[in-house]
Design a protein around this nucleic acid. Structure first.
Lengths: 108, 108
DNA sequence: CGTATTGCTACGTTATTTGTAGCAACGGAA
DNA sequence: TTCCGTTGCTACAAATAACGTAGCAATACG
């Protein structure tokens, strides 16, 4: 079922500067994007399981984010179904893993 | 395959899960939130300067994010005016600073 | 006084997200 | 084969968030 993510060529806000960090901050600053990466951090999940993990977020947004994250090369759809992180995605996930510890101390 | 996602019953938006990481991911997953922290990483900026730095984002959202980030304790409004990171905010900023290097390698 | 900042808000338009329902395709069991 | 349950994914209208422009009161210069 490994299908190619369709290319919508959506203009990424903040990418006008040509600075990748802006595009990345914009991509990750969309709803559920960070959460999706977080939920996939340990193992691949089916779209349904991911939705459950993301607190029943609407499939519309999840699908949109998954497509964007796939186009970015962070997420992939495995042959046997189920979404998982690519090597790049796993690497990205690692970079904000310390956020977990920070959040624990933060509490709010 | 579909591993049963455990009992996550509530919306992240309300942060009723009791898990700080979810609240944090939600807060940072709002538009311009990450960008604001990023732009303040070196020095405080006035609201106008911040707006310029954030690619002329509308003051409505910026103000909303700044209020949220202030309530979270990441940003503060200095005596002489100008928004800056708190000690906590600086710490948070550090945790995703490696994102910069990652983005450079990513390029897309 | 006039002028130019500051942080901040009102408001109408547009874009995004939500929630619910449902699709076609595949697989296993009967 | 048919039935059932799953997969990834989409349609659609309503709700929400963001955008863009304008402008406010307060402060600080001159």
């Amino acid at each position: 079922m490994a299908k190619q993510a369709n290319s919508k060529t959506r203009s990424v806000r903040g990418s006008r500067t040509g600075r990748p960090i802006m595009a990345l901050l914009d991509l990750l600053g969309r709803r559920w994007a960070l959460r999706i990466l977080w939920e996939l951090r340990e193992e691949p999940l089916t779209s349904r399981a991911l939705r459950t993990a993301c607190d029943e977020a609407s499939p519309t947004v999840l699908q949109a984010r998954l497509t964007e994250l796939r186009e970015a090369g962070f997420v992939e759809l495995g042959d046997g179904g189920g979404y998982g992180l690519t090597a790049l995605g796993r690497e990205l996930c690692e970079t904000f893993m310390p956020l977990h510890r920070f959040a624990e101390r933060w509490k709010r």
